[in-house]
Write a protein that binds this DNA or RNA. Structure first.
Lengths: 216, 216
DNA sequence: TAACTGACTAACTTACTAGTCAGTTTAGCA
DNA sequence: TGCTAAACTGACTAGTAAGTTAGTCAGTTA
């Protein structure tokens, strides 16, 4: 779904605007927050409605059901991840820069949408991938594993099990986001999703990942 | 809470045993699964009761409320993590073996209780640490950070930001458990929590972590 | 300006779920 | 063996949350 300029502009106003596109966008935005925070089951349509300043019935009017809204949120949220590998053509790069580039892209994607990890987590643990078949995320793992295998083949990476290593790389990238609310106590309550902190995380994560695959 | 031998023994039988200790242990075990899978809000006391082959009222009889049961589960589940640093005396080891030992202990702890990561995530994301003050987990981060700082000071570890690095180490250890249900598709549906796979994860995680902190 | 259409609302229904309680059963002891 | 306290049960209640519906409101067109 493409969000129009109009929709973007009015998105945070509380006034009723009587514009289908805007209302849907507002509901989607509020729903993403709600689902990221509480998961599908514990999410409350009433809260989403209140946040959106429309009435609960609008959710059913536009999205049929709570589930329907959830699926719409998932689709929008993961559209970017699915197309991660395509935008950077990794074939042209050698394994080391390819890995670096891909991880950088993945981290940038997460930074742009910090709700994604939580939604992913809920979908995996609570719904067991019922609504999102994880094909997008599996793509991430297999792409990483391929890069790692190539690197091993030409002797620029250490010996490792590609799939486990890929999982660990994703773990390094994602964990920070899912735990951010508690990690802040390590910085005396500092906001962990601020641009500076996210940048610091990205930098540390990339260094850690590149170091973890290098030859010893 | 110490689980007696008697309780352990009868834990998985379906027959009514009319033993307070056993019943409580059965409820706790079923509740741990339920809370790990669904979180506090989406957990259903009726499901816990059904799993336990007792009646829902017993939960309130022994644990007063759903929240009370949840707190009891948290307390039991995290008692081990809190005392992780104590059992191995890290002071006597130099940073490298200390890090290796500590991570090994942490991973062993997770393998023994694979529900722990999911419970941790729910508590962090959904309840924002309302019931578990994360002092236990914060201890893990600070211990790791201290080891890393020592290693940097004597020049056996590369230059890194200790807290971010500690977070990434924990991420590598934990992520596998939270995503296991989806990761299995990378192995054609293989069970990811089997002893062999857990062992493989532990081994890969330790290698990865040790490689990630070494001097380049 | 009247008919029309889609956006929106308030009030309602139905289903579910945590928690209660009055009463029953059983283990173990006198 | 009978008594008692603790373990346990089934039926109930109050509250909550998803989903429905009849109808209102605002913009648009002829």
């Amino acid at each position: 779904m493409v969000r129009s300029e109009k929709a973007k502009h009015v998105l945070d106003t509380a006034h009723p605007v009587r514009d289908a596109e805007v209302t849907q966008a507002k509901i989607l935005a509020a729903a993403e927050e709600e689902f990221a925070r509480h998961g599908l089951v514990a999410a409350r349509t009433e809260r989403i409605a209140a946040q959106t300043h429309v009435v609960k019935a609008m959710i059913h009017y536009y999205f049929k059901s709570k589930e329907g809204l959830y699926q719409a949120v998932l689709e929008r949220a993961f559209s970017e991840i699915s197309s991660l590998g395509e935008q950077l053509d990794l074939e042209q790069l050698s394994p080391k820069p390819a890995l670096k580039q891909y991880v950088r892209g993945f981290l940038a994607c997460l930074s742009r949408n910090p709700n994604l990890p939580a939604i992913l987590f809920y979908e995996a643990i609570q719904n067991r991938g019922k609504y999102y078949k994880w094909t997008g995320m599996l793509q991430v793992y297999t792409t990483l594993a391929e890069i790692l295998e190539q690197g091993m083949a030409i002797g620029v990476f250490r010996t490792l099990e590609p799939r486990h290593a890929a999982i660990n790389i994703v773990g390094v990238c994602i964990f920070y986001f899912t735990a951010h609310e508690n990690l802040k106590h390590l910085w005396r309550g500092k906001q962990m999703l601020s641009p500076e902190m996210l940048d610091q995380h990205a930098q540390e994560a990339i260094t850690t990942i590149m170091a973890s695959v290098q030859l010893s």
